[in-house]
Nucleic acid binder design. Structure first.
Length: 229
DNA sequence: ACCCAGGGTCATA
DNA sequence: TATGACCATGGG
């Protein structure tokens, strides 16, 4: 529906005006493999912890699929330990490296048609829908809208969203409402949209300390009355 | 001493 | 399909 698109673009512009000053120290232009490692390590984890783990990996030159693949599994666990759930995360990284191996190369894997790539990622142990979409969007740089807990929380508050509540329903809703004829423009809009949502929720629209009265979205946000005395 | 963070898997009903 | 236990570190 066209009204949905307009509402989403209004929110987009509001978020952009609020957070553009923060700069773009987010994934959009980072190295693809680093994006993928970050996407796996950040699962249910604070980003500051992920930065430590990425720092460890960088320090030993392992932010490279070929190098990481030759690490001792136990050594990999030690390196990613600060990101929490370190045994699971190390196993997930090795599962992804196996997928790379089967595809021949990282470029070969990321170069597959987006739907094919997404299916292959979902077939990899430790990669679910959100992580797969992050990889398609920010590493392979193809359009695929990312849904996360922030997105559902923010837009539920604003009374915007699909009929159902499953990941696929949210994804389909945003992709339909924010359609663009040109794939490059589509990817750009979706990438920036998700980045803005994350920035907004990290800095403003947090669950325990809603600051909606100070937020440009306050007029449409039911949580606006929760803060203040 | 809690609570929770940019999820995902597995077992159960 | 849907809910719950589990993973585990570090910051507030």
């Amino acid at each position: 529906m066209n009204g949905d698109r307009d509402r989403l673009l209004d929110v987009y512009r509001a978020l952009d005006q609020m957070h553009a000053w923060r700069g773009w120290h987010w994934w959009p232009d980072a190295d693809p493999f680093e994006v993928i490692v970050g996407a796996i390590l950040v699962q249910n984890t604070a980003w500051t912890n992920v930065e430590r783990a990425l720092g460890n990996l960088r320090a030993v030159g392992s932010l490279d699929p070929g190098v990481m693949a030759h690490l001792d599994p136990e050594e990999l666990e030690v390196l990613v330990r600060p990101s929490g759930q370190y045994r699971q995360k190390a196993r997930k990284l090795r599962a992804f490296l196996q997928a790379v191996k089967e595809a021949g190369s990282l470029e070969g894997l990321l170069g597959r048609p987006p739907a094919d790539l997404r299916a292959r990622l979902l077939g990899t142990w430790g990669i679910g829908e959100e992580t797969a979409d992050c990889i398609v969007l920010y590493a392979a740089r193809r359009p695929s809208f990312v849904i996360d807990a922030y997105t559902q929380r923010l837009f539920s508050r604003l009374g915007i969203g699909p009929a159902g509540s499953s990941y696929g329903q949210w994804k389909d809703y945003f992709e339909a409402a924010l359609a663009e004829p040109d794939p490059a423009r589509r990817r750009e809009l979706w990438a920036r949209y998700h980045a803005l949502v994350v920035m907004h929720c990290k800095h403003v629209c947090r669950k325990r300390t809603p600051l909606c009265a100070q937020c440009a979205l306050a007029a449409g946000c039911p949580a606006a009355g929760l803060d203040g005395a």
